[in-house]
Design a binder for these strands. Sequence first.
DNA 1: GCCAACGTTGGC
DNA 2: GCCAACGTTGGC
Length: 137
Amino acid sequence: MAYWLMKSEPAVYSWEQMAGDKKTVWSGVRNHQAANNMKAMKPGDRAFFYHSNDGREIAGIVKVSRPYHSDPTDTSGKFGMVEVTAEKPLKKPVALAEIKAQPQLRNMALVRQSRLSVSPVTAAEWVAICKMGGIQP
DNA sequence: GCCAACGTTGGC
DNA sequence: GCCAACGTTGGC
């Protein structure tokens, strides 16, 4: 069981839409590092749903419901996608500023590589953020 | 709106 | 294979 973080601009696709849709495919990723992270995902893995740009906070949790497979929006055939299902919102969204203020979270991929749209999360980071978000890990 | 980080492209 | 130019992401 691994943990991840997936970014979305709320103006494009928000947590509210994610929760309404129940599940969605994470298409459109065109970065190899992000794609490799999705490749490593297994059904049942969980990911934080992060609002980038406008919001800058973790809003909810999704679960991987289908492993990496080809992305029909990529005509080159190089990139794939996973399918994720909304699990639950955080009781209290966790802002990027709060994450940066926590010494034990300073090494998060989210902080260190701000442009990476799909990044790994360690078990310790997962637990700490769930606690900050007011939910059970 | 600005800019840092970083990926990609293309000339050589 | 190197590197300058350029485009994009995303925080501030």
